[in-house]
Every structure is written in structure tokens, then in C-alpha cells.
Nucleic acid binder design. Structure first.
Lengths: 366, 366
DNA sequence: CTGAAAGCGCTTACAG
DNA sequence: CTGAAAGCGCTTACAG
């Protein structure tokens, strides 16, 4: 009876399953001639496996195209990790890139996700309360929350592991993944200088974000290095929103000695600045070059498409989640992991919103 | 030995777990005085449970605050459902809302997600090939793919269940969830008429989308009903992108008899139209009212913020995934589910981009 | 460094 | 309509 039933079952499985995880830890073990336990050790990167054995197992895994069954794994390890993503991002385009990365990683790692938006000043407390009652094992923070000392403190008080993504002020004891905002802003500004621009404006991001400051510092440093004096009349205060870029650009661009290029420290503000330029009858890039930062979808949505600094947001988010998961795991084993600060590369993406400054005489229309 | 080890284990569990799923099907069964099997039947909404028993179990579930362990569930049922989301959406802001809904639902339902972007005409074939090799159990389609007969045919040929979200041409044999695009466009247009607008422009969406047509039809119907003749000179062709709205608005708004209001059939195009208006020296809404459709983040990013038709994108996406999962399940049980066509409610959101038409004399600036 | 045993929480496939 | 048994694929906690 039992045997027959099992036979039927196997058959059913072979037919109905998708091929994916038909190969189990058992098959691998058999293939190599070890116990399933050893295979388990290898795939969990545990020590106490002879190097030779490990190699063989790894090979078998490849040959058999084995991939672990997440459900079995989390059931057996009693480990149904729940991670919260708290956002309060003024730029939805940034958030969507971020989500894509988180999504990819979470389905791969088999962790549950809780997405919470946190608006307003009271928002943080409310969300944290919710996390407390629902119960989560860790938190991943996109900017600007990743830069907030208040949030960091609250999370620490709750003894909740967390990782900040795209933060430029990595707390020494909190893991983070980011790009070098200073260097990136420096590179972009230098690029504008190389194009021939001498009067280069800047739109700052939200003052509560440290990376906002770093980007500004990179701009200042690049100008200084090029022998250009920083004119505060060319620097506007923004808040990372389209609207703030729109407003800041208005005062920069309506000056008689307006800059020939404006570097907005994120894409949403750059898009707002482009709108303002158009509104003032200026062509982009003929009358004014406008560049952004992040390379979110906004950068390639608006017209002209924005020259910008590419930040690999979704990769960074994925990596951040991975790091968080590791942290949670080791915390459960009672050993705190040393905080890691990962730095990813940025890139300058040239699109249609930038060019060399055009001498007045050559600017034809309007 | 065994007993001791188990004791330790339980202890460890009680301490380390998050409170969430500490309650198992067993606890519920014991509480009611039935077998775990019966509880399982109840939570899976199977028949063959006496109504009285069912009630008791349901109550116990509530009292004990039981929630099923997804990992155990999918392990036992051999059901690790993998669902693909294929997108080729020109509007990232739409996609991000969509993703949020999908994310919420997938982590709740415990299914794996595969997110694939599909660009260009060859893209579809490539993606489908990939799905074939990786192995997925179903596909969820946001627009415009949800409207594509080619994709639908290919998916059917693969015998893959799928659900279209925000499609207005629900294939009779494919489940879908959408709003009534016709009614929504009708309502928005009527609202503009009520504000006093007589010359109302329209920017169409991509011609390959049927809902694009429905929105246009709603516009036409509302004008007709108001006794206003549709002037094709007031109708521009767009493709749902910012840029296309920008371009279409240019020809509409630079006419001497330009419309006093423009209804762009999505938010990205409306944002583009606002940019064009500004570029032409027109104030929004004083010189021209511009409204959108969808209420994506784009609508509240730009300035002025857009009056628009709210489509509950993330709810719709979540529901779509849920429906897909049910379909997959019943397919596995060998019984095809009847296709369902869900219609959600829309809402008109009034923001700053619309107003009654201002008589020329009153328009002061510029 | 390696393995045998038990169990994670649930469902499937029976048997009544 | 209900339940006892076996098993899903993996890991934990031992014992060697």
C-alpha cells in the first residue's frame, strides 16, 4: 500500500513538477557518495567539510543543476525571516528601482517582505510600532531614512538589525551600501567644466541628507580644482522633489548672469529645472545644460533626456537586503557580524540635456 | 535523549521566535478537539466539513491568532508556485505602483516572482523562451502587454495560465481586472465640461492598446452628450510616454484657437503637456487646464500637481495575482476555472492643474 | 570532518 | 464527514 502510494506520488511529481527543484539534496549526496548532511553543510558554507569533499559536492551540484528548496529550508530551520522596507522617498522613480532590486533578492532568498510607507514626522514612530506588533527580523532603509540618526537610534533601541542603502554617512556600527557621492559629483562637475562651462549652478538636495552635502562638496571641490570660484548665487536649495528643483531653478535661471549649466543633485529636481528652463524660454541644452543624479526612470522620461550620474540603485538594494539577511542569521546564532560598508561604482551617463556652452551669437531661436 | 533534545528545542523556539506562527494547526485542532486534518480542510476551504465543525475551527483560529506557515504549506503541497511578471511599460511610475501591489500579494501568498522586462518587438519571444526554460506556472500582465493578442496567443499556446491587469479588452477566456476606462474618461470629460470648458483637447494613448481607444470613446461620448462637436484638430496622437505628450500638446496648444483644457489619457503624457504649455508661455491652469489619467506618482510629482482619474493600480495588481494563483491551483487539480472579469472603481482626483476657463481679459501675467 | 535520527508545519492519499 | 499515516526537502542537535 505504502509502496504503491509512494510510487504513484513519484510519478505524479515527475509529471507535474516544473523541472526546477526535482533534484534534491539527496540526489546530490548520492551522486558524490556522501550523506545529505554533508551536502547541506556545503550549500550553507559551513566549515568542517574537507576541501576535497566540498569540491566534489559543488561539482555535483552543478552537474545535477541542483537548487535548494526554499520552503523546506525555512521550514526546517524555523527561519521565516520577515524584513521590513520603510520608505519615505520623495522620488517615486527612485523607489521603483529600489523595489525591483529588493524584489529580485527577496524572492531568491525566500524572505518575507513588509513594505511600509512612512510619511510625516510622526510616521516613523507609527511604523516602528507596527513593526513591533507584527514582528520583523530586520529593516532595510532606502534614503533619506538611511541617513536619519533618529531612525537609526530607534531601530537600535529595538535591537533590530538594519542596513542603510545609498547613505553617505554610514554609521560606524551599521552596515551600508552606497556609491561615493563626493567622487560622483566631482566627476560630473569636472565633466561640465571639460565641456567648457565656467558658470555652473548647483541645486542642493534635502538638508537632512548627508549625501546631499557630499554631492555639494564634490561640486565645490571640482570647481575649486578647476580654478573656478564658487558663487553662492549659483547655488540653490532643493529638497529632492521635482517641485523644489522647479523653484530653485527659477531663481538661478532668471538672473542676468545665469549659469550656462545647472547640476541638480537628483533627477527629479533636474526634471523640474528643465521645466523651469522651458518656462523661461530657454532651450536645453542650447541655452542651458541641465544634468541630474541617480539615473532613475525620470531621467529618461522627460525631454530632453537627462545626462546624469548613474547609481546602480537596484543592485545596491539587492546587495543591501542580502547583507541584512546575513546579519539576521548571525544574530540568531548569537554572534554579531562586523558592519560592512560596501561602495559600488557610479557612471556618468551622457544624454541630450548637456552640451558645450553655445556662444550667444549662435543661439538662434526665440 | 530524544525527549530532552525536544525539550530544549521547544524552549529555544519559544524564546527566539517572533510570536507570529508559534501557533500551529495542531494547537488549533487540540483547542477544538478535532484532528489537524480537519483544521487543514477548513483553512483550505475544502468541502466535507460539517458546518458546525467549521465554525468551531474558524473561531479557534481567531482566538489563538493562528496563521498558516507558508513554508510548510508549500513544502507539503509540493507547490512552489512561480509567477512571471512581464512588463514593457512605457510609464515607470505606473509600473512602480503595480509592483507594490504584486509585492504585497506575493509575499502574502508565498509565491515566487520572476520579473522580466520585455523591450522591442523581439522581446516577447525572448522572454517567453526564458520562461519556458526556467519554468513558471503562470504570468501576470500589466498594460500594454495585457492588451496584446500576440502575447495572449503565445501564452495560450504554452498552456500557461495568465491574468491581464488594466486591460479593456478582456479576452473572453482570460481572466482580467480593470476599471471601466470608458466611464472614467466620460466622467473626467464631463467634469471639464461642467467647469465651463467648451474647447477640450484630447491626447490619445498608444494605438496598440484597446483601453486607449475606450478612453477616447469616453471623451467623445461626453462631448457629444454635452452638445459639443468633436474637433479632430483638438485630438492629438500620443504613445503614453512623457515625450509623446510633450509633442502632441505642442500642436494642440500652439493653434490660435487652442483648447482651454487638454485631457491627456495618462499622467506621463499630461506631465509632458504641462511642460509644453510652460514652454509656450502658458500658465496651468490659468491659460490651459491639463488633466491626466491613472494617478501615478507622476501626477503628484510635477508642478502643478495633476487633476487626474485615479485607477487603484496596486490593488488591481494584487487582485490580479490572487486570481492567477487560484487559476494555477485549480489547473493543477485538473479543473479549469471559469474566467473572471473584475471591474474596480475609479475616482476623479482634483488637484491644481485644472480650473474653470479664465476669460482672456482676466489672465494677467506674461 | 561526517553521518543517523528526528522534526519543522503542513498536505496528500487513503481508509473508514 | 473525519482521521491516522507518511512524506515534502531540508536543518538542528547530537554522537562519533
Amino acid at each position: 500500500m505504502t509502496i504503491r502510494s509512494q510510487g504513484v506520488r513519484l510519478l505524479a511529481r515527475k509529471i507535474s513538477r516544473r523541472g526546477g527543484s526535482i533534484v534534491t539534496i539527496h540526489d546530490v549526496a548520492q551522486h558524490v557518495g556522501v550523506s545529505p548532511m554533508t551536502v547541506s553543510r556545503v550549500i550553507n558554507a559551513e566549515k568542517n567539510v574537507r576541501e576535497e569533499t566540498r569540491k566534489k559536492v559543488l561539482e555535483a551540484i552543478k552537474v545535477l543543476n541542483y537548487s535548494p528548496n526554499m520552503a523546506a529550508r525555512s521550514l526546517a530551520s524555523q527561519d521565516s525571516t520577515r524584513v521590513a522596507l520603510i520608505y519615505s522617498n520623495p522620488s517615486m522613480s527612485f523607489l521603483s528601482e529600489f523595489l525591483l532590486g529588493i524584489l529580485q533578492q527577496s524572492s531568491q532568498s525566500g524572505c518575507q517582505l513588509l513594505i511600509e510607507s512612512c510619511e510625516g514626522p510622526e510616521g516613523v514612530a507609527d511604523v516602528l510600532d507596527k513593526l513591533r506588533t507584527v514582528g520583523v527580523d530586520g529593516v532595510i532603509l532606502p534614503p533619506p531614512l538611511s541617513d536619519s540618526t533618529r531612525v537609526a537610534k530607534a531601530l537600535k533601541d529595538m535591537k533590530l538589525p538594519f542596513v542603510g542603502v545609498a547613505t553617505s554617512r554610514p554609521l560606524p556600527d551599521v552596515s551600508s551600501v552606497s556609491i561615493d557621492d563626493f567622487k560622483a559629483a566631482f566627476a560630473m562637475t569636472s565633466r561640465l567644466v571639460a565641456l567648457g562651462h565656467k558658470r555652473i549652478g548647483f541645486i542642493k538636495g534635502h538638508p537632512n541628507s548627508f549625501y546631499s552635502e557630499l554631492r555639494y562638496n564634490g561640486y565645490v571641490e571640482a570647481l575649486t580644482k578647476a580654478g573656478i570660484k564658487v558663487d553662492q548665487a549659483c547655488v540653490g536649495q532643493g529638497y529632492f522633489t521635482y517641485r523644489s528643483g522647479f523653484d530653485a531653478a527659477e531663481s538661478l535661471l532668471s538672473r542676468p548672469d545665469r549659469p550656462t549649466a545647472v547640476f541638480a543633485s537628483n533627477d527629479d529636481m533636474a526634471a523640474g529645472a528643465v521645466a523651469t528652463a522651458h518656462r523661461l524660454g530657454l532651450e536645453v541644452p542650447d541655452d542651458v545644460t541641465i544634468v541630474g543624479f541617480d539615473d532613475t526612470s525620470m531621467a529618461s522620461s522627460v525631454w530632453p533626456e537627462l545626462t546624469t550620474v548613474r547609481q546602480p540603485i537596484s543592485d545596491m538594494a539587492a546587495l543591501g537586503l542580502k547583507m541584512l539577511l546575513e546579519q539576521i542569521k548571525s544574530k540568531r546564532q548569537g554572534q554579531a557580524l562586523k558592519p560592512v560598508h560596501e561602495i559600488r561604482d557610479f557612471a556618468i551617463i551622457e544624454r541630450q540635456s548637456s552640451s558645450a556652452p553655445v556662444p550667444d551669437a549662435e543661439v538662434g531661436r526665440k
